[in-house]
Amino acid sequence: MSDDLVHPAATPAGTAALLPGPSGGAVAVAGPWLDTAGSVGAVRKGIASLLGGMRVTGRYVARPSTVVTQHYPENRETLRVPERFRGALRFHHDADGYHGCTVCRICEDQCPNRSIVITQREKGALTKKELDTFIWRLDACTFCNTCVMVCPFNVLHFGPGFESAVYDRRLLVYTLNGYAGPTAALLNKQADPDARKAACEPRDPFCGPTVLQALAEKRAARRKAAEAEAAQGVGLKSPAAFEKSAARTAPDPVPVPGPVPVPAPVPVPTQPGSVEAADVG
């Protein structure tokens, strides 16, 4: 109905009312009720526009593929999260599980609310500066993407994980790196695979300084007990069933914080190098 607002000049004589203007002269005012010229064209245009709208909505009805609704809890397996969605922060790990973090701490400095804390290894295996833990606090993060943008080595990215609900907010503190040790570039220079392994020390999502170490240990103990029970044949769960249920929540070979914050099913090492990084998961 934008045709109602006809410019006074476009109004034919006799249909415009003359009102005194602010400067004393008469101003032609055209109201919608006065304009009859061009109304047939306006009606035709209006009908065409209505039919155009009906074509659009009719197409939506005729094609169920245009439905955008996700049947979320049921389609968890096939859920497609948009590429640019900012879910849980993650480390890039290459095929060997190595990352590129050099502990330059730019992201830590730039983080507006200190949701990133980086600790350095006391004694590096190959260089002086080696990453120990990269701690990310989901509860403090605003997902502003600054850390991802400032990282000179493209170590960080936001993953698709969004199911971050937990019963204890301390569980929202994650360690992102899969191992403590030198960068991928340095590790790849080592020809001897054993030397590489020796330079690394596994890390899981809950092993940082603020870790719920006790929780991780409790889970490990529970797992061990279940295994023992299963070995004796008195447990309700067979070992296979346990493995299956563990695999459902177990993270990738390199433990990165998944939607369900369950620690990797490896005991947290007490001595550097006591557990091999490649065994994780």
Binding site: T57, Y60, T69
Partner: peptide
């Protein structure tokens, strides 16, 4: 149901 499909939704499900 029809309103939902006019709006690319699925409606009651």
């Amino acid at each position: 149901k029809i309103a939902a499909h006019f709006q690319c939704r699925v409606g009651p499900y």
